[in-house]
């Protein structure tokens, strides 16, 4: 007989014995534990602790995933150059107002942005340039 067949035989035996563990009355399970030298209360407490540990780990994993999703969403909002021309222009103006020193270093085009002379594509291009310079071009609230 091959090892696989022998193993399968033992696996079947284990399954039958587990069926018996499932079917045994509570009193017998407790009595068996004591007979084997275990304290049922201590065993129960240890298994319960494993369960609570699993619950805590899963909650932590869910929290981490939620935080990562929020951060990813925030990054997406911060880095996305709006396709709506009016919104892009509003953000550019807002950004130049918040960072006048940067605006001063930029080209005449930037200053034209504030006067409204730029085309929609130029506004988006400028927002992308500012983003490349490390400025947040998204919906970052004031003071953050």
């Amino acid at each position: 007989m091959t090892d696989d067949k022998e193993r399968a035989a033992l696996e079947r035996l284990k399954s039958a014995l587990v069926e018996d563990i499932l079917a045994a009355p509570d009193g017998e399970i407790l009595a068996e534990a004591q007979e084997d030298g275990s304290d049922p209360e201590a065993v129960a407490a240890a298994v319960r602790a494993l369960f609570e540990k699993s619950v805590a780990a899963e909650k932590k994993a869910r929290l981490t995933a939620a935080q990562a999703a929020v951060a990813a969403d925030r990054r997406r909002r911060l880095t996305a150059v709006p396709s709506d021309p009016a919104e892009a222009r509003r953000r550019l103006n807002h950004l130049l107002a918040r960072h006048p020193e940067t605006a001063g270093k930029l080209t005449m085009a930037a200053r034209k942005g504030q006067s409204g002379d730029l085309s929609d594509d130029e506004v988006r291009g400028l927002l992308e340039d500012l983003q490349d310079l490390g400025l947040s071009t998204g919906e970052e609230p004031e003071g953050r």
């Binding site: 033992l10 014995l17 563990i21 045994a24 399970i29 534990a33 209360e41 129960a44």
Partner: peptide
């Protein structure tokens, strides 16, 4: 109940054999 936790432990031990 306590017996439920003990039962789970016994089953785990059984499935870990070999």
């Amino acid at each position: 109940p306590v017996a439920g936790w003990v039962r789970l432990r016994k089953i785990a031990v059984m499935f870990c054999q070999r």
